[in-house]
Design a protein around this nucleic acid. Structure first.
Lengths: 340, 340
DNA sequence: AATAGTTTTGCAAATGTTTTCATAAATTTC
DNA sequence: GAAATTTATGAAAACATTTGCAAAACTATT
């Protein structure tokens, strides 16, 4: 096939091969209905022969969409974000977009830098994780007027449409569950919350809820652990060594809860007979665990998918100021929690 | 700050604001050392004032690099690929590249389509997962002469530099380990291998190795399960219900092994006393498991990082035809396997 | 067969940059 | 202080495309 190999393979090469003008080739791609069927065929062959691939960069400088969406997550390799990204990517791919993906590792400065890079690439839209971002970030987005969606958290009054779960609600659901089982001696294990509004909201909701029920969590039972099974396992192991153990442990997410389960197993405690352990997230695998983990489902795939379609729609119809979507968290009671 | 808000904010607007020519502004970004310090400052202010953001699309049509790398994985939301992508992304970000990410879901046709899209965006480089791809895919890459790296598997004679582990070796390591513990009644649980050369290589290596040692795995003990804890748990539960159980179960990856562990727990079998269970991968969490999972470490993060730097280097120096890298798999014996 | 109407195509300008070449400004040398 | 260098800047062409406008090529109508 591709004989004239080392030619330039631009639109003009195709035009020459098809004996038409460059304008006609352009129309072949953008308004094929304007062409005579025979011309269309001629160009089709020429494209094949020359091995032409359209150049989106050249289109983009005409104000035509770049066909890319910038997606910014704290990190890719937490199941939870990976799921969101996967669903998001699938959703927008259907509309012809490709995602430009980057992670900032919870560093607000890096977030700004990456965002600028996205804008240099003239992304058609932007998806950020979480609701709170540096003022400069929002300023930049507003200035460029690029459609934006905030994923993962939901809040009524967010500056851009937000698609996600209400993390406070998630926190309330799980603490309500634990309280309703009659637990009063409760420990908590949270993720670090600086630069992470999800973690912050959960922590606040859980502590408030417990407090309202007259339960105070003593200082040494308020643990913090980075997002890692190993770290969580170690922290909880320490906790359980101390004399009087809590009857329930609320973890800020399922990964922490998983570590806690292992720690309990190692300490010879039975779950849920000796201690109830619960998480938030319902990550892949949480249901298959032995015992199944009681948790609150945050519908990651729905969030990704809906965020994707919301953004794609906003891009294609710049008038429509789309609203956000609350993907409701849902308590999933399993075997890891039981009455005192 | 940004007062002249609704102007055009292109290089010419900056030029006007700084009372210099567009060429000078261009130089400010690309060859700042050619400018007088005072001019530089004047332009710097103008950029701020106008709110200018460089347009990479316009640069790209000059044959300047787009600053993007196309990354194509089967799916993003398997820990293992997420880790590779994260490490890859970090590595190339350091060199100024942003990744264009897409997943093909093990569909060769989609892989081709996505690749074309990458090329339309004029990516500077391409990273594919695995060694075998449609002929059309390789043809397209060769025709466009875009630097490419194959991640995840390693093979001496791959058509493009490959960075990854030797999956056959991984298979041999784990089966050798199981045999050396004295096991003879061995069952296997593999991932489906169509369009997945990693799975294929492991399966072949394991069966060959066992065969060479005089162990034949009876047909009903050769299970296949999709990549999911739930699916694997179900399959293995079925197996264990049948009369005589194997003394060891070799799983094609850690996810399958995890499901198997749960199934064993549910069936009341102790690991490793009643049955040894091993995996391949050493995914995040495999070490924290109770009992810790014996597995073969495939260094995902190293693979991603090295693939990234290899590709970045190949892009920056088009002469250098870089070689691949074998990231050696390593047996990690833990508590889930023991002598018969 | 001429006219009017419609469909198809080409020309040239426009898009936002970079880069070559030439010129102007600043600096050094005598 | 003029000449010779060196350094800094601008004008215009180039990049790969799209698009408005006008001309050319068809069809239909009489």
């Amino acid at each position: 096939m591709t004989d004239k190999s080392r030619k330039k393979a631009d639109i003009i090469a195709v035009a020459k091969a098809a004996r038409v003008s460059a304008a006609t080739v352009s129309r072949y791609f953008n308004h094929p209905d304007l062409l005579k069927a025979t011309t269309r065929r001629r160009i089709e062959n020429a494209v094949q022969k020359v091995g032409y691939i359209r150049n989106r960069a050249a289109q983009t400088i005409h104000g035509i969409r770049s066909g890319t969406i910038g997606v910014l997550v704290p990190t890719i390799d937490h199941t939870i974000f990976a799921e969101v990204v996967q669903a998001f990517s699938d959703a927008v791919a259907e509309e012809g977009f490709t995602i430009l993906l980057a992670s900032h590792g919870y560093d607000q400065q890096r977030e700004y830098t990456i965002l600028r890079k996205f804008l240099e690439h003239r992304v058609d839209g932007i998806a950020l994780t979480g609701l709170d971002h540096d003022a400069a970030v929002f300023q930049l987005i507003d200035r460029q007027e690029v459609p934006t969606v905030l994923m993962w958290n939901y809040s009524e009054g967010s500056p851009h449409p937000s698609v996600g779960a209400d993390n406070e609600l998630a926190g309330r659901l799980i603490s309500d569950h634990v309280l309703s089982l009659g637990h009063r001696r409760i420990a908590c294990l949270f993720a670090p919350s600086e630069g992470n509004d999800r973690a912050k909201a959960r922590r606040r909701a859980i502590l408030d809820m417990l407090h309202a029920a007259g339960v105070t969590v003593p200082e040494p039972w308020q643990l913090t652990s980075v997002y890692s099974i190993a770290a969580s396992k170690a922290k909880v192991a320490d906790l359980l060594e101390g004399g009087t153990a809590p009857t329930a442990l609320i973890c800020g997410n399922d990964i922490l809860a998983t570590g806690a389960m292992y720690a309990a197993a190692k300490a010879g405690l039975r779950v849920p007979e000796d201690i109830s352990i619960v998480g938030i997230g319902d990550f892949k695998g949480s249901s298959e665990f032995e015992p199944g983990l009681t948790t609150v489902r945050l519908p990651a795939r729905s969030i990704g998918r809906i965020a994707g379609t919301t953004l794609a729609r906003a891009i294609k119809d710049p008038q429509a100021r789309p609203g956000g979507t609350h993907c409701a968290p849902e308590l999933i009671p399993r075997a890891s929690s039981a009455p005192v």
